[in-house]
């Protein structure tokens, strides 16, 4: 049903640390790799080796240049995927009931067997989290690796989303936001984790951690002490004479 649950037992989601993300795109690749072989229709590519390759991805990593008021510009990498919103507008617009939010853990999913591929949910999502697969004609989105996190056939350390598992800099964290003592809840409290576009009232579950404040770079040259050496003796005399000639 496309009616949103009034309450979910858990609020599973991700914390994305913009301070440590290096933009390596490993999460993009791991996501596509895992989600291409199990859950639902495969993530197709169109013209993959041609001039304009295109394909379905559930996770995209943007790169921004941010110029602070003081100091040098910073490059900040910005992974973007489904935020598993509490008030998900993509769910309520769905005419067929294919889109739904799970009561048990808050994950927003698509029942591909009921999806007619109208694309209205992708329009309703402010974050661009949904992509219509061009081969299967059904809507694809992040499942929070629902087929990994509860999968008892996997070793325990692998029971987290593929993007989190693969991240080489630990910029992605997975957990339950309904539990105030969970790792993700603590991270958000400590680091000032924030929602994307909160004024659209979607109440995203995923949070972003802002980049830490950078040190103020030294204005003076590192060579300054060396440049300030006063010559003595013959060199000093030469320096004085040549200075006068110049």
């Amino acid at each position: 049903m496309t009616q949103l649950p009034t309450h979910t037992d858990k609020k599973l989601g991700l914390v994305i640390d913009l301070d440590t993300c290096v933009g390596c795109q490993a999460c993009v690749t791991a996501c596509k790799g895992w989600n291409d072989q199990g859950y639902g229709a495969e993530l197709s590519d169109q013209n993959p080796y041609g001039a304009e390759p295109s394909g379905t991805f559930l996770n995209r990593v943007h790169s921004y240049q941010v110029q602070p008021d003081i100091g040098a510009a910073q490059i900040i990498n910005f992974p973007r995927s489904c935020l598993h919103c509490e008030d998900a507008p993509c769910v309520t617009v769905c005419p067929t009931g294919a889109s739904y939010k799970r009561t048990e853990d808050g994950i927003v999913l698509v029942n591909e067997d009921a999806c007619i591929g109208c694309g209205l949910c992708a329009w309703a999502c402010p974050y661009g989290a949904r992509e219509l697969d061009q081969a299967a004609g059904v809507m694809k989105k992040c499942t929070l690796c629902v087929d990994r996190i509860y999968n008892e056939n996997l070793p325990e350390e692998d029971r987290e989303p593929a993007c989190v598992r693969t991240c080489p800099t630990n910029a992605r964290h997975f957990g339950d936001f309904a539990d105030p003592d969970s790792k993700v809840s603590k991270l958000v409290a400590e680091r000032g984790g924030y929602d994307l576009m909160p004024d659209l009232k979607t109440k995203p579950t995923n949070k972003y951690l802002p980049p830490r404040k950078k040190d103020i770079p030294q204005e003076a040259s590192l060579l300054a002490p060396l440049l300030d050496i006063q010559a003595t003796g013959f060199a000093g005399w030469l320096d004085k004479v040549l200075g006068k000639l110049g």
Binding site: V61, H62, Q74, A122, P210
Partner: peptide, 29 residues
């Protein structure tokens, strides 16, 4: 800046796109 929350750091511009050619989102929206 507001959509990414990066306005709390400074003024943000696109440095590099996440993909080299348009995807469904860009074609549609």
């Amino acid at each position: 800046g507001k959509a990414t929350g990066l306005d709390q750091v400074g003024s943000a511009t696109v440095f590099e796109q996440p993909h080299t050619s348009p995807n469904y989102l860009m074609r549609e929206m």
